[in-house]
Design a protein around this nucleic acid. Structure first.
Length: 416
DNA sequence: AGCCTAACCCAACTGGCCCT
DNA sequence: AGGGCCAGTTGGGTTAGGCT
C-alpha cells in the first residue's frame, strides 16, 4: 500500500508560520461549557455550540465597529444573539448595534432561536403568574409520602433511604420542569433590555447553507462567525432524535433531514447532482465549474482522497463509507467557502471553529485544506489559532495507532 | 490557608452489530 | 453485502473534603 504525506506536508510548510497557540482560548470557551452559566444562553444546551464569550472575543478583536453578521451554521444562535445584544464593557456605547442573519437546517436549533426571541417579547409579569399556576398543578399530583403503591412483595424490599431516593426520582420530572421555568423567569427578570426586543435585528433562514448561501447578495456581510459540522461522522439527526420527535417529525422527515445535512456522517450520499441543479437554476453554472476546479486542484485534498481509497481497499477503515463522507464534506465546504467569500464585504472577516480529524491513523488537516480553498476564493489566511491542548484519540484508536494529538482550531480569513 | 487526592464528571467518537 | 443504527472506553478536567 502506497501512503504518502508529501502534499499535506507541503501545505503545512506553506501555512506553518500562521499557526499559533492562543493562550486566551480554552476548551471551555470554544465549547458550550462557558454558556452553561450564562443567563438566556443556558436555556437549551446545544452540545456542539461555542460560547457567547468566544463570539465577543473575536468580534472585539477583529471588527469592533457594528455591521451585519452571518452564521451559516447557526445552531441555537449563539453568534446571532451575541451580536445583537452588545455589552457595554466590550462594545462602545455610542456604536449602533449589529444586525444578524443565521441559516440553520436542524429544526431543533431553529426552534431554540425562535423560542428565545418569543420569550424576550412576552409579558414577564404574566409569565411569572402562569408559572406559579403550572407549578401548583404539579404539586397536586405529588404525593410527598410515597409514589410507590406497595404490594406485599415490595414492602420493606428496600431501606427507607432507598425509597426516599426512588421517590425523589419519580418526582423529578415535575421538579426539573419547575426548576427550568424558574431559571427562565429569573433570566428574563434580570435581563434589562426593554420588552419590545433587541437593539439589533435578527433573521433566521430555515434550510441548508448549500441552498441558502447562493441566494444572498454580494458583499452584504461584514463578519461571518461560525462552526460548521466537523468531518467526524457525527449524525445530528441521531443526537437530536428525541428533540426532533418532540417537535413532531416522523421517521421519513428525519431520514430526509439526514440526507440534507452537509456530509458529515457515513450515511450521507453524494450531493453532486443537487449542487449542479442549484447553480443551473440560478444561472450560475460557471460558478459551479469554478468551485469544482478549485476542489480538484488542491493536491492535499487529492492525497487524502486517494489514501482513504487505498485504506478502504485494504479493509483498514472501520466503515467503508468514510472516503465518500470525507470527499463530499470537503466538496460541500468548498461551495460554502466560495459563497462566504462572495457575500462578504471587502476587509470583512470569517472566523471559523473546526477540528482536524483522523481515519485509519491518517491525519486529515481540515484547517489547511479549507484555508487553501479560502485563499483560492480571495480570502487571505490571517491566522490559524489553536488551543494549547489539542484533542487526543478516542479510546477505540489507542490500541491500533497509539496516542497522538490533533489540532483544535479557529481560522481567521480576511477578504482582500 | 494551601496542598493533595479520591471521586466524580464528561467527552463534536467510532467499532461493530443487526436487519433487510 | 451493506445500509442503518447502537452504545461502551478511557484520558483528562473539576471539585469536595481531608490533611498538614
Amino acid at each position: 500500500m502506497m501512503i504518502t504525506d508529501e502534499a499535506r506536508k507541503k501545505l503545512f510548510k506553506k501555512y506553518e508560520k500562521l499557526i499559533a497557540v492562543n493562550p486566551d482560548l480554552n476548551r471551555r470557551l470554544v465549547s458550550f461549557q462557558a454558556n452553561k452559566q450564562v443567563p438566556l444562553y443556558r436555556w437549551f444546551k446545544y452540545k456542539e455550540g461555542f460560547s457567547s464569550k468566544l463570539v465577543r472575543y473575536f468580534m472585539t478583536k477583529y471588527h469592533p465597529t457594528a455591521g451585519h453578521i452571518l452564521d451559516p451554521f447557526a445552531g441555537a444562535g449563539t453568534t446571532l444573539f451575541s451580536a445583537i445584544n452588545p455589552e457595554k464593557d466590550l462594545f462602545s456605547t455610542d456604536c449602533p448595534s449589529w444586525s444578524s442573519t443565521g441559516i440553520e437546517l436542524m429544526p431543533v436549533g431553529k426552534f431554540a432561536i425562535e423560542a428565545r426571541l418569543a420569550a424576550e417579547r412576552i409579558d414577564r409579569k404574566r409569565f411569572h403568574q402562569q408559572m406559579e399556576v403550572f407549578g401548583r398543578s404539579f404539586d397536586e399530583f405529588r404525593d410527598t409520602s410515597s409514589r410507590i403503591k406497595h404490594i406485599a412483595i415490595t414492602q420493606n424490599a428496600f431501606t427507607g433511604k432507598t425509597e426516599e431516593n426512588l421517590n425523589r426520582y419519580l418526582n423529578y420530572f415535575g421538579e426539573a420542569i419547575s426548576a427550568k421555568l424558574r431559571q427562565i423567569a429569573g433570566d428574563l427578570r434580570g435581563d434589562n433590555r426593554n420588552e419590545s426586543g433587541h437593539d439589533g435585528k435578527l433573521t433566521v433562514i430555515s434550510g441548508s447553507s448549500l441552498e441558502a448561501l447562493p441566494k444572498l447578495a454580494d458583499g452584504s456581510f461584514d463578519f461571518i462567525m461560525t462552526s460548521p459540522p466537523y468531518c467526524n461522522r457525527y449524525d445530528y439527526t441521531r443526537t437530536y432524535a428525541l428533540e426532533l420527535v418532540f417537535l413532531g417529525h416522523d421517521d421519513a422527515d428525519v431520514k430526509r433531514l439526514r440526507q440534507e445535512l452537509l456530509s458529515c456522517t457515513v450515511e450521507n450520499k453524494e450531493k453532486d447532482h443537487k449542487l449542479k441543479e442549484i447553480y443551473n437554476k440560478i444561472g450560475r453554472r460557471s460558478d459551479y465549474d469554478h468551485v469544482m476546479s478549485v476542489y480538484m486542484a488542491c493536491e492535499a485534498m487529492q492525497e487524502v482522497n486517494s489514501i482513504l481509497g487505498e485504506l478502504n481497499a485494504h479493509k483498514k477503515l472501520n466503515n467503508s463509507n468514510i472516503p465518500r463522507m470525507v470527499r463530499n464534506y470537503f466538496l460541500e465546504m468548498c461551495f460554502c467557502i466560495f459563497e462566504m467569500a462572495r457575500i462578504l464585504k471587502n476587509n470583512g472577516f470569517v472566523v471559523m471553529v473546526n477540528d482536524n480529524v483522523r481515519y485509519g491513523g491518517e491525519e486529515i488537516p481540515v484547517d489547511l485544506i479549507l484555508s487553501s480553498f479560502a485563499e483560492s476564493f480571495g480570502l487571505r489566511l490571517k491566522k490559524i489559532w489553536i488551543l494549547a491542548t489539542g484533542k487526543g484519540n478516542s479510546s477505540q484508536q489507542m490500541g491500533n495507532h497509539g496516542k497522538s494529538e490533533l489540532r483544535k482550531c479557529i481560522y481567521v480569513w480576511e477578504k482582500i
